[in-house]
Design a protein around this nucleic acid. Structure first.
Lengths: 125, 125
DNA sequence: ATATTACCTGGAGTTAACTCTAAGTCAAGC
DNA sequence: GCTTGACTTAGAGTTAACTCCAGGTAATAT
C-alpha cells in the first residue's frame, strides 16, 4: 500500500505517517527499490495500533519507548508488559477524573434547565 | 487570599493562575488598592471549576467562551447550557474510546504474561 | 521525449498551553 | 531610610505534536 492509501484508510495525513516513522513511533516501513514506502499488512497494523493508543492520550514519548523495546526482541517482554501496566494505570486515573467531570456537567446542565424555566416563567408572569 | 496561597491550595503555579486570568479563563480577580490580587471565595470557586474542567481535557478556548457567556449575564443561559451539552458529548466520546483502549491494554498485558511464562518454561526445559 | 503526478528528505513553521524573565512597585522588618 | 521579599506587567521562550515547504526523484500519461 502507498502512503496515500494508508492515509486514506486510517484518516491520518501522510505527513503524520512520515513523522510517526521518523520519530520511531512505528518501526521503519517497507520500501520499494525506488525508496518509496510500500506498507505491508504488518506496517498497517502498527499504524492502526499507534492511532488507537494516541487517540486514548498515550504520549508519543511513551509509545516510542514501547516500539524501541519491541524492536530489541524477546528479552524486553517484561519491560514492555510493565510499560503497558503503567499506562493502563494512567488511563484509569484519567477516566476516573473524567467520570467525575461528567457527573458535574450533568448536574450543571440540570441546573441550567431549571434556571431557564424559572426565567421564562418570570417573563410570562 | 494571595496568589501564592491559591497556588498552594489548588496545586497550580502562580504563573498559570495569572495566565488563566489574562486569557479570560477565569473572570478578573478582585484586587487590593495596591493592585495585588486578593482572591475571594468566589474567585477561588472559578479556579477550582477551571482546574477541574481542564483536568478532563476541555480546551481553554471552550472554557473562555463559557466564561465570556457567563459574564454577559442571564440572557446567555441557553447558550451556556448548550455549550455544556456539547462538551459532555465530546467527553463521552473520549471516554468511550478510552474504554476500548483499556480493554485492548488488558488483553495485551494478558498476552504478555502468557508469553513471558512460555519463554521461561523454554529456558528451564 | 516531455509533462504531470505522487512520492522523497531535511528542516522550518504552527498551535495550544503553559512557563520564564526582566524590570518595576509596595508593604514590612531592621 | 533602606533592604528584602512577594507581588505586578508585558512579552519572550518552551514543549508536544504535528504541519508545511522547498527542492529533488521516479513512474506514468501523452
Amino acid at each position: 500500500m502507498t502512503i496515500s492509501e494508508v492515509s486514506e484508510k486510517y484518516g491520518l495525513p501522510a505527513d503524520t505517517l512520515r513523522y510517526y516513522e521518523k520519530v520511531g513511533l512505528i518501526p521503519p516501513v517497507t520500501r520499494k527499490e525506488s525508496g518509496v514506502r510500500d506498507y505491508t499488512p504488518e506496517d498497517c497494523g502498527w499504524v492502526e495500533f499507534i492511532k488507537c493508543m494516541r487517540g486514548a492520550g498515550l504520549s508519543i514519548e511513551t509509545l516510542t519507548r514501547y516500539v524501541a523495546l519491541y524492536r530489541k526482541g524477546n528479552r524486553t517482554l517484561k519491560q514492555r508488559k510493565q510499560l503497558l501496566i503503567d499506562e493502563r494505570e494512567h488511563l484509569q486515573e484519567r477516566m476516573k477524573q473524567m467520570q467525575q467531570v461528567l457527573k458535574r456537567l450533568n448536574y450543571k446542565i440540570d441546573m441550567y434547565e431549571k434556571e431557564i424555566v424559572a426565567c421564562e416563567k418570570k417573563l410570562l408572569g
